[in-house]
């Protein structure tokens, strides 16, 4: 309790902590929203791949001082296109193609960062450094959050139908491929924002875990999106608290909280056997009273 009070009073005192809280909340919302579509489309591996493949773009942005979003987008989309190209122009399965492309991009990113000779940067990129976000980082994150919300709101029904029944979407003329690449582009932008909070290695956890937790609790897409965003925010904020209080790296702290929320849901959520048992017990208790 004491440490929670001191966390809250520190929030009132320190700008850096306020910035961290704001960023963590925004990243929690956007990764929950996009992560929902990633898990519904069975693209967890693709999400992991794209989030790693942006590394060369991030490195080049640091080296030459241009906007990190541009660098990351270029490499993210390039990776998505290459993965699609290799899978459709060979008899290899998509997961093999993903494995080849993303590891190559990741390796290239490492070499570029080592050329830039900045080991502190590397550590922050890999594991996140939420306690050091700049005002410009906050602005960038806010812009990405706005784009993500617009994307999900404007293309809600297209995202729904192409995730649920892609063949049907194709028969009525929806450009399913184009939507896929648009989603990949938005995913790269979310990755760049999540770099600050959890780092590149753990971005995939922010995409998948809160959305998976929400999936266990909901029966409608609109509810899934809201609950996933909420789980993302809860994980980020509680993780930030642990990070500040115990001086843990912010990324692992946030991801462990997200995993704990999932673990609890796995036992008690309505879509799980345990949750159904609970509900049955609750019903019986009500009958007896």
């Amino acid at each position: 309790m004491n440490s929670i009070m001191s966390f809250i009073s520190a929030l009132g005192k320190y700008d850096f902590l306020q910035s961290a809280l704001l960023t963590a909340t925004m990243v929690g919302v956007m990764s929950g929203l996009i992560g929902s579509f990633i898990i519904l489309r069975g693209m967890s591996l693709m999400g992991d791949a794209i989030s790693h493949a942006v590394l060369p773009g991030v490195a080049l942005a640091y080296m030459f001082g241009f906007n990190i979003l541009i660098g990351a987008s270029v490499f993210g989309i390039l990776a998505a296109l290459l993965i699609g190209y290799v899978a459709s122009h060979s008899q290899l399965k998509t997961d093999t193609s993903i494995g080849i492309i993303f590891s190559a991009f990741y390796a290239l990113g490492f070499i570029l960062i080592s050329l830039a000779e900045s080991s502190t940067n590397l550590h922050h990129i890999l594991f996140g450094n939420i306690l050091a976000v700049s005002d410009q980082d906050i602005m960038t994150t806010a812009v990405v959050l706005g784009l993500v919300i617009l994307f999900v709101v404007f293309f809600y029904k297209e995202l729904l139908i192409s995730s649920f029944d892609a063949t049907f979407a194709q028969t009525y003329g929806l450009k399913v491929q184009l939507l896929h690449y648009a989603l990949m582009l938005v995913l790269t932008l979310v990755t760049v924002s999540a770099l600050q909070t959890v780092g590149i290695i753990l971005v995939v956890a922010m995409l998948i875990t809160p959305a998976a937790t929400a999936f266990l609790w909901t029966q409608k897409l609109s509810q899934l999106l809201v609950v996933a965003a909420l789980m993302g925010v809860l994980s980020s904020v509680i993780g930030l608290y642990f990070s500040y209080t115990f001086n843990w790296a912010s990324g692992p702290a946030i991801v462990l909280v997200a995993a704990m929320l999932f673990g609890i849901s796995f036992v008690v959520a309505p879509r799980q056997a345990g949750g159904q048992l609970w509900q049955a017990l609750a019903r019986r208790r009500r009958v007896r009273v």
Binding site: K157, L160, I161, F164, K220
Partner: peptide
């Protein structure tokens, strides 16, 4: 995907998307 978070009414409604 029978686990997709969508109910009967919403599936039918997708017929109007085109």
């Amino acid at each position: 995907d029978l686990t997709f978070p969508i109910n009967v009414a919403e599936v039918v409604l997708t017929g109007t998307y085109g």
